[in-house]
Design a protein around this nucleic acid. Structure first.
Lengths: 253, 253
DNA sequence: CGTAACTTTGAGACGTATCAATTCTTGTGG
DNA sequence: CCACAAGAATTGATACGTCTCAAAGTTACG
């Protein structure tokens, strides 16, 4: 059984065969399918289960009083949707799917137990949380001090890197079901402006984007345009596992 | 001994006398003073100690390649500066003081031990981390979908609330050593624009700001201008502890 | 094969940045 | 206690990035 959760955490630490088996059985215990545009967990809701995205694509978002949507993060397979639910009374945002997806459900009591162990699994869970914090901080830098072009380039490049480390692709092409409206809600622009920027990226030979597939034709230039540095992802073991992801300077792709 | 760390965590959970004593002794073990504008922990650095801010004011920030600074969060007494350091190899951002400050230092091995317990202290530490995530997400909403006026109002109002729950004030006036340049670096504006907005807030009778003191003269209007809702702070026990912080509708002043 | 969702295009308005100059504060040493 | 320096706040005029709103294409899908 493929286990994107374990694959993701192995960017940080090494698991024994026994630990891998345990992670597999945790995921197998209880699963659920979702359609596109469905909430995995609603804003203000509580649940006794944490959800781990297994397949599909989801996002964290909030709906503002005036009806506008802000996407705060995209979730790819292996990501934990609602780590907070085992400790907080209710969600302060929603997690919803963008495409049809499946999740594994882990009971909060099991999650609590896992976190209390002196094991690589517990450490990896902490690492995941700390990395989430890093990703959010990077997004704040994006929106505070980078212009629309850099912001969009950064988002596209980050998605490429995250798909590569999750093992979903080995090339520079990724499945990309995110609409321009979604991109606009994530970067704080209007869809029109996203559209015009994407056209420029295409004209400049940086990307191709059609048929729900994004191909980064010039990754080095896209990375430098985005001022991307992978430090905030804390991929301590990626180099050892997959040297191909790195270029000669030791930088990701 | 005053213990802002314990006070903050008591917004979430109740401690026994023994737990309070333990928290006191953890803070007393090793402390350090910092001058204004000094790094508590530098970008890329590693340390064997976590720092908890005891007095003063600090911020998380990053310096971009072009020299610009983005402030990602302000830290008030009781806040944990670098929770990630016990699990990650190095910081992906810096934490620096804005005013002269003191911190308590807790060895990472002690921190790890605390987190593994089945105790209210461990739960409160998790709560703090989850709340930090919430604050960052709220800042992303701010910068993505609110205009400069709302953004600045939101920041000012959040600082008032955080000072009130930390016990630093019982009125609507707080010590405010944050310069307009700092505010600009936190909200992603220019100092000039911050200045013009603050003038408007003053003209509109929302705030007074002079002599490093911020007085919110019309908290209700400032809150509604900011579209502020305290949900993301997860102050589960605040109402029980300090009903005065709430207005009649049950919303945080 | 029709319809809804998504993408593309255009022209004008507006919010915020820029950059430079001035005034006000604050802290410091004579 | 005053004078000065350095930092912080304020002001102004202009430029530009991005939004707005509306309409026309295009694509995906039941």
């Amino acid at each position: 059984m493929s286990n994107p959760w374990a694959t993701k955490m192995e960017q940080f630490t090494a698991f024994t065969a026994g630990e891998r088996e345990r992670l597999d059985s945790l995921l197998a215990f209880k699963q659920r399918g979702f359609e596109a545009q469905e909430d995995i967990i609603a804003d203000g809701a509580h649940s006794d289960y944490c959800h781990i995205l297994l397949t599909g694509l989801a996002c964290r978002y909030k709906i503002l009083p005036d009806g506008e949507r802000q996407i705060m993060a995209f979730l790819v397979p292996g990501d934990l949707c609602d780590a907070e639910i085992f400790i907080l009374k209710k969600m302060d945002h929603a997690v919803g799917t963008l495409t049809a997806s499946t999740t594994a459900m882990i009971h909060s009591s099991v999650m609590k137990m896992l976190l209390r162990e002196a094991s690589p699994i517990a450490e990896a869970l902490w690492w995941g949380t700390m990395t989430d914090l890093g990703v959010l901080r990077e997004r704040i830098v994006d929106q505070g001090r980078r212009d629309a072009t850099e912001r969009l380039a950064h988002l596209l490049y980050e998605m490429l890197v995250r798909y590569r480390i999750s093992g979903a692709t080995k090339t520079n092409a990724i499945d990309f079901p995110i609409t321009q409206t979604d991109l606009a809600d994530a970067t704080g622009m209007t869809p029109s402006h996203v559209n015009r920027l994407l056209q420029r990226f295409r004209e400049d030979g940086l990307i191709e984007l059609r048929n729900r597939t994004l191909t980064v034709t010039n990754p080095l230039r896209l990375r430098s345009l985005a001022q991307f540095s992978a430090t905030y992802l804390h991929l301590d073991r990626t180099e050892a596992r997959d040297p191909a992801v790195y270029d000669r300077a030791g930088e990701l792709i």
